[in-house]
Simulated assay, not measured.
Amino acid sequence: MNYKIRSIRADEWAAARELRLVALKDPVAHLAFFETYDEALAKPDSFYQERAVGAAEGAETAQQVIAEGPDGQWVGTATVLLEEPGTVDWAGLAVERKQGHIVAVFVRPEVRGIGLTEVLFDAALEWAWGRGVERVRLIVHEDNERARRFYGKVGFVPTGVIVPLAGNPDEREVEMAVERP
């Protein structure tokens, strides 16, 4: 595997935007992401610039890790957010302990199945463990079987927490987590 795994730099917002737009065209994007391609496309550059600064190398509350191909093209990404005890997460759930939350996972279809996603997750987990978190979690749509299988393969297990989707009570997401080794 000839890919470089690293944190993004703040000035790489345009590449982060481009990969996000590619991700939102994936056939399961409606299960994996909370926005559509058109919504993301309509956001101003300043949105992506701020997002990159907040998750770039050296940021303390989030980190976006990318896989860069031999030609410099970004082929995969995962972002880990830090959540502090005593706060409330995006779904309105209480955060009881310091934890990481992996979001925005995507690997281009042409490089799936070669172990790249596992390496991205290793880097995201290493960053989170280095910040003293007790566990790392993620939320996955109950119908996103491909993602659920992968997360189980890399050690994440269902916690029993169910998150109903706003606007559609018939659809749910499940929390999966891995404890600090």
Rank of each mutant, 00 (worst) to 15 (best):
D71E: 13
E18G: 02
L116Y: 12
V75S: 09
Q49K: 13
E179H: 03
R131M: 14
A128W: 05
W127V: 14
A55C: 12
Q64T: 10
K25L: 07
H30R: 07
Q63G: 03
A29L: 06
E35Q: 10
Y37K: 08
V88H: 02
V80Q: 00
G69Y: 10
G132C: 14
E84L: 08
G58L: 14
A16C: 01
A59L: 08
H30T: 09
F33Y: 07
P169K: 11
A78R: 00
G92E: 04
E39M: 10
L21P: 02
Q49T: 07
V75E: 10
I8Y: 00
G132Y: 11
E60G: 10
T117N: 11
V178Y: 02
V161K: 13
V174A: 06
F150E: 13
G100W: 01
A29P: 05
T77L: 07
G155V: 12
E18S: 08
P70N: 14
R51E: 10
G167Y: 11
L138W: 09
R172N: 10
G167D: 11
R146T: 15
V22E: 07
A15G: 01
A62G: 06
Q63Y: 02
F34L: 09
A56N: 09
V111T: 11
K153D: 14
R9W: 00
L165A: 12
V80S: 04
I5A: 01
V163K: 14
E84N: 06
L116P: 11
W90A: 03
R51H: 08
L81K: 05
I139M: 05
N2E: 06
R20F: 00
E84H: 06
L93Q: 04
Q99N: 01
F106H: 06
A128Q: 09
E68Y: 12
L82C: 08
L21A: 05
E57Y: 08
L120N: 08
K4M: 03
M176Y: 08
G130C: 13
P169A: 12
R108E: 10
Y151H: 10
L31C: 08
G152K: 15
V22P: 00
H101L: 07
N2I: 00
R148P: 11
H101V: 04
E12Q: 05
A104F: 00
Y48N: 05
V133I: 15
E175Y: 05
V154I: 15
P164R: 13
K153F: 15
P70S: 14
R9L: 04
A29M: 05
